[in-house]
């Protein structure tokens, strides 16, 4: 990992918190808004935020296809909106996605902001404090997806090869373990 750079897609959302979380996990992190910044990174985080907003900007700024290509050779970690972007299938409403992880995701599946919550979850990485904010639910996982944590029997932390998704926000806690785990994929 030494000398490697982790980009954080910084079109919209809590990208600053991811930069901080990656740095506290020992990585060199940079904000990514253009194709050249993307291609200079060795791995990428897709932050929390509004997936519709990010999707629109990805298309308008010509980042969608380069991002897909990036995911075919380098690791991507998506949280919340980022998990929605990485999925193969998105509902409520249906929207386009990168199709880099074999999961089906339902947006805002717990309800509105009043249904946001903080819970403690057992996971393959130990007990994690999980902050869910207008979170999506992973409704289906393909055969190559490994589930690392569940909440109410739904997968909330999962990986497929080099990619990782969380429907909660590890970047909003002081615990760097999930980010540290992602860095092992570099």
């Amino acid at each position: 990992m030494a000398g490697k750079t982790v980009g954080v897609l910084a079109l919209q959302g809590d990208y600053e918190r991811h930069v901080r979380a990656l740095e506290s996990a020992g990585a060199h992190a940079v904000e990514v808004r253009t194709v050249s910044e993307l291609n200079a990174a060795d791995a990428l985080v897709l932050p929390g935020g509004e997936s519709t907003t990010m999707l629109k900007l990805l298309h308008r700024e010509g980042l969608f296809e380069p991002l897909k290509a990036f995911g075919h050779s380098k690791p991507i970690f998506g949280t919340c909106a980022g998990a929605i972007l990485l999925a193969t299938h998105v509902t409520s409403p249906e929207q386009e996605s990168l199709g880099l992880m074999d999961i089906g995701v339902q947006r805002n599946a717990y309800g509105r902001q009043l249904d946001s919550r903080v819970v403690t979850l057992p996971s393959d990485l130990g007990d994690l404090e999980a902050v869910f904010i207008r979170a999506p639910i992973i409704r289906s996982v393909g055969p190559e997806v490994k589930v690392l944590a569940t909440y109410n029997n739904d997968p909330v932390l999962a990986e497929q090869g080099r990619h990782l998704v969380a429907t909660f926000h590890p970047e909003l806690t002081a615990d760097p373990r999930v980010h540290a785990y992602f860095l092992t994929k570099l």
């Binding site: 919209q12 959302g13 809590d14 600053e16 935020g49 919340c80 902050v131 207008r134 909003l172």
Partner: peptide, 11 residues
């Protein structure tokens, strides 16, 4: 949680 949603709106 309240501050968290505001974080998601940044940028």
């Amino acid at each position: 949680l309240k501050v968290g949603l505001a974080e998601m709106l940044k940028g």
